[in-house]
Design a protein around this nucleic acid. Structure first.
Length: 266
DNA sequence: TTGCTCAGCGAGGTTACATCA
DNA sequence: GATGATGTAACCTCGCTGAGC
């Protein structure tokens, strides 16, 4: 891959003070209206995050983790048996009006390692009473989706990363979740994907920058070598005649680099 | 055709909670 | 058991878009 592949232009101004311009050429003078990070992403969107190994320990390889989980999950033809939310399936017109929190019935089944072996009823009742003690205020409760639910959502996300209302409802019914929960999961999943892609892009640009810096250093060194050679007397005596050309405008003798490079570098 | 309002949606950021080391 | 780090469900805000008028 080279700079042309990326449609990037590079400005190298002078030794020790080079300017790296990674904007596409067609928007070089429009930095005010263009989010540079967005531009970089658009340049690099062809790099599939799923094809690249995770570059940061901070970013979890969620997909891989879930895939491994899927492989461990026994086949469950009927996914409606999830008990994490144990909400009765709500009709489309009613679902948004429901006030009760799904967290009032947190399942112990989905908790990892069997640590959460507290009877489900107790957990539910204790949470319920605590809510009531809060004066019935709908404190934000959070639940963990079961592995099965996550796996199904993940599979669905692979097919289409956005949902139309019908797909949302279907998925919600299948997983025994509220449509809102499915919607939120997809929103968060898109955000995670984007974050991961940004990390990959950032890493790639960093490597590009390093490579170009190195190239710049090498070219500057070459320029210095050429200048020093030019200043030495009888310079052209070392140059094969075939490598010498006369500039028609200034009538100076120039060295064809392609033919003379081996001698200069050695 | 133009302008306005409104609903729906996605993105980005934040908060709150669960889990783990 | 306390604590900090991490992951993520849920929420909030903003901007965009299309429909209806």
């Amino acid at each position: 891959m080279n700079r042309e592949d990326l449609n990037l232009s590079l400005s190298l101004r002078r030794v020790g003070d080079f300017e790296l311009n990674l904007l596409p050429r067609n928007c070089r003078n429009d930095s005010s209206s263009l989010d540079r990070s967005e531009t970089a992403r658009s340049i690099l969107k062809s790099f599939d995050v799923n094809r690249i190994q995770a570059t940061s320990d901070r970013i979890p390889t969620t997909t891989d983790a879930i895939r491994s989980e899927i492989s461990r999950i026994p086949a469950t033809p009927n996914m409606a048996g999830f008990d994490v939310n144990r909400i009765p399936v709500i009709s489309e017109c009613e679902e948004e009006a429901v006030v009760s929190s799904p967290m009032s019935t947190v399942s112990s089944l989905s908790m990892s390692g069997g640590k959460r072996d507290e009877p489900e009823g107790e957990r539910a009742s204790s949470r319920g009473s605590s809510d009531e003690e809060d004066g019935g205020e709908a404190a934000r409760k959070k639940l963990r989706l079961s592995k099965d639910q996550s796996a199904v959502l993940e599979e669905s996300f692979k097919e289409h990363n956005t949902l139309n209302p019908k797909q949302k409802l279907t998925l919600a019914k299948q997983l025994n979740l509220r449509p809102r929960q499915v919607e939120v999961w997809f929103q968060n999943r898109r955000a995670r994907t984007k974050l991961k892609q940004t990390e990959v892009d950032c890493e790639f640009l960093k490597r590009c920058c390093e490579n170009l810096t190195e190239e710049n250093r090498r070219l500057q060194k070459e320029v210095m070598e050429l200048r020093s050679l030019k200043q030495t007397p009888h310079f052209y005596m070392h140059v094969p005649p075939a490598a010498l050309t006369m500039c028609p405008s200034c009538e100076r003798v120039a060295v064809s680099e392609s033919q003379f490079r081996p001698q200069i570098r050695s």
